[in-house]
């Protein structure tokens, strides 16, 4: 057990979709469980206290009206050697950017920030959710210490992007870098991007600000 890395999974304000995405790797998930030492994951196991861990995967945004959430965020930073903001809510805010409170049963809870805004994260992964294969790729790279593979995610943790479809327009189309490959359109989980005359047109009604389209764009250096 000693040479296995210890991994914790912590959930803040999220739908659990990122964890489900990891489990969606089926038998490969068993390989993952065999090659790591999972020390905390409320959905899958009975452990009450967040222990110290080599890697803490955090999914979800931080609710500022919930002091418990803020404490968990700080605890995560203290206990984790490498803190990974897993998925768009933790990395960028995603759907929680649209929250404004006034809903039952907690009408006062209306301010959500991405984890990257609250604590320093070592890595951030966009996507709603990130695909099973991608999460697997990151965990495998963490086990092997493959820094080359992890580089984009380390950079993503400190980049200040809007994580909106607008990023594509401002950083790629407006900068005469878009050549119309269409990968952004295919990657969008809500089909908010239509290719018109070889360029992306983003529907602001459908975009959930998950950041996938611009991460997937080959013309942006991440």
């Amino acid at each position: 057990m000693e040479d296995k890395i210890t991994v914790a999974h912590v959930q803040l304000s999220s739908c659990c979709g990122c964890l489900i995405s990891l489990v969606d790797t089926y038998e490969k998930f068993l390989d993952v469980l065999n090659s790591i030492d999972l020390v905390y994951c409320q959905t899958l196991m009975d452990a009450r206290e967040i222990p110290e861990a080599d890697v803490i995967l955090v999914e979800g945004a931080v609710c500022l009206e919930d002091h418990h959430a803020l404490e968990v965020a700080r605890e995560v930073r203290k206990k984790g050697k490498t803190v990974v903001a897993l998925g768009a809510c933790a990395a960028l805010g995603c759907i929680t950017r649209f929250a404004k409170g006034g809903q039952m049963p907690k009408p006062v809870q209306g301010s959500f920030s991405s984890l990257t805004e609250i604590i320093r994260c070592d890595m951030a992964i966009p996507g709603c959710p990130p695909s099973p294969e991608l999460i697997l790729g990151v965990i495998t790279a963490l086990i092997k210490g493959d820094e080359e593979y992890l580089k984009p995610f380390r950079r993503y943790a400190v980049c200040k992007c809007e994580s909106c479809g607008c990023d594509l327009i401002i950083n790629v189309v407006n900068k005469s870098l878009c050549m119309g490959c269409g990968i952004c359109s295919a990657s969008c989980p809500t089909r908010a991007i239509e290719m018109v005359d070889g360029r992306p047109v983003v529907s602001p009604q459908l975009c959930v600000k998950c950041g996938v389209c611009s991460f997937q764009c080959p013309r942006i250096e991440i």
């Binding site: 996507g127 294969e133 990968i183 990657s187 969008c188 991460f215 997937q216």
Partner: peptide
């Protein structure tokens, strides 16, 4: 672009 998506399939499940 496709090679990048194959290496980093963030938005491409299975």
């Amino acid at each position: 672009s496709l090679r990048k998506a194959l290496k980093y399939p963030v938005g491409f499940r299975h």
